[in-house]
Design a protein around this nucleic acid. Structure first.
Lengths: 219, 219
DNA sequence: TAGATTGTTAATCGATTAACAATC
DNA sequence: TAGATTGTTAATCGATTAACAATC
C-alpha cells in the first residue's frame, strides 16, 4: 500500500487513530481490530478498515487484527512526527511568543528555531533562547543557515500576504498560517491554514442553533 | 432563508466570505455578485450562490448582485462575531497564557474572563488583569458569577478528559478544545476541536508527498 | 476446521458542479 | 427590451456505508 495520496479527510483522521492506538498500547495490548478502533472514535468499521489499509506497510491478519506498534510507526512516519523540521515564526506577538515557548511541537516533528518581527522593542532580543530578527533580515541565506524550511505566520490578517510573499521569496517549502486570511502562494509551496476565527465560529454557530431550537421548542 | 442548518463545509467557508466581503467593502464597493466572490476564493460560482442564498436574509437582485453590507451583517450574525460570550480558559501554560493576553478574540465575539490551573505558582495570580483560579474552584457558581458559558481547554492531552468533565459539571454550554485529544461530553454540550498536531501533520504530509514525488521524478 | 476479521466490490448518500429557467 | 445574474432543478463526483468473498 502507501501509494495513493490520502484524502484530506483520511489525513485528518490519522492523528485520532494515533491517539487511540497509543492509549491501547499503554494499556498493554499488542494487536487491535478495526471494530475496536471504530468504536473508540465513533466511526464506521469499514471506513477504519480502508483508512488503515491505505496507511499500513503490513497487511492485517484475519481473525486477529493488526499489530499496534506497527500501526503507530506507520502513522507517525506518514504524519512526520518522527522526522524533525526546523521552522521560523513570523510575528512575535502573544501567539508567536507562546509558540516560541511551547515545547509540545517537537513531539510532532517541528522545531521552532527563530522568530521575526518588525517591532523595534522585540527584534534583536531572544525568546526562550531563540533569536528574534527584524523582518527585513528574512532571507534565503538566513533560513539556509538556520536550516529552516517551514515558515509559521502569526501576524494580523492584514499583514499575512506580505509575510507570505517574503517567506516564499526566502524559499520556504511549507507555510503554517495562523492569520485569519487566505494567502496566495505558488503551487510548489504547501500551505496549511489554522483559522482560530473559523473554529470559534463553528462553536458559536452550534450554540446559537441549539439555543434557537430550544427557544422555539419552549415558545 | 436561514432555516436549514448549514453543513460543516458551508460554515467553514463563511469566515472566508466575510474576509473577502470586508476587503471589497473597504475598497469602496457596495454590491457584489457570486462570480466575484467565487474568483476571490477559488470556488465554484454555483457553490457560492448556494452558500450565500442559504445565509442571506435578503434575496439577490438579478443583473446586479447583492448588498455587501447586508451580507457582512448576515454572516456576522450567524458566526456570532457581534454577540459576545464570556469564556474561561483551563490550562494557563504557554498557550493558555497567550490567549489570556490575546486581544483578537473579542473581534470574534469571545471575551476570556478568567483562567484555571493547578500549578501553585500560577494560581491566585492575575494574567493580563484576569484572575487565575485553582482548578478545584471550577464550579457552576463561579462560572455563573463570571457570566461564562464557554470553556477553553489548553491542557496537555492526558488531562483533557478530566478537564472536560469538570467543565461539563460546571454547566458550560460549549467547549473549545485545543488538546490533541477527542473528548467525550454529553450531547447537549457543543465541542469545537482545534488540533494543532493535525494541522501540522497535514503540512508535513504534503511536504513529504511532494518531496517523494520529486525524488521519483529525478531518480 | 470453524469463525472472526480482513480486503474488496457494489450501493448509498451527500456535496459539488452543470444546466437552465426566472427576473430585475 | 436585452442581458447579466439570480434561484433551482438535474447530473456528476467522491466519500461513506453495506455486502460479501477470501483467509489465517
Amino acid at each position: 500500500m502507501r501509494e495513493k495520496k490520502l484524502t484530506k479527510n483520511q489525513l485528518h483522521r490519522l492523528p485520532d487513530y494515533l491517539w487511540v492506538l497509543k492509549n491501547l498500547e499503554s494499556s498493554g495490548l499488542k494487536t487491535v481490530n478495526s471494530q475496536t478502533l471504530a468504536d473508540c472514535l465513533d466511526l464506521n468499521n469499514e471506513l477504519v478498515r480502508k483508512d488503515i489499509a491505505s496507511i499500513s506497510t503490513e497487511s492485517g491478519i484475519p481473525n486477529k487484527g493488526r499489530k499496534i506498534s506497527q500501526l503507530i510507526a506507520d502513522i507517525e512516519t506518514i504524519l512526520g512526527f518522527n522526522r524533525v523540521s526546523n521552522a521560523v515564526i513570523v510575528g512575535v506577538g502573544s501567539l508567536g511568543t507562546a509558540f516560541l515557548h511551547y515545547k509540545g511541537f517537537e513531539d510532532f516533528g517541528l522545531r521552532i528555531v527563530a522568530g521575526f518581527d518588525n517591532n523595534p522593542y522585540i527584534k534583536g532580543k531572544e525568546v526562550n533562547d531563540k533569536p528574534v530578527y527584524d523582518i527585513s533580515e528574512l532571507s534565503e541565506e538566513l533560513l539556509k543557515k538556520l536550516n529552516a524550511n517551514i515558515g509559521i505566520i502569526t501576524v494580523p490578517g492584514y499583514a499575512a500576504q506580505v509575510v507570505a510573499d517574503a517567506l516564499v521569496k526566502a524559499k520556504v517549502q511549507g507555510i503554517w498560517n495562523f492569520a485569519p486570511t487566505k494567502i496566495n502562494v505558488p503551487n510548489n509551496v504547501i500551505v496549511s491554514n489554522i483559522n482560530l476565527a473559523t473554529s470559534l465560529a463553528v462553536l458559536s454557530y452550534e450554540l446559537y442553533f441549539k439555543n434557537e431550537k430550544e427557544k422555539s421548542k419552549n415558545g
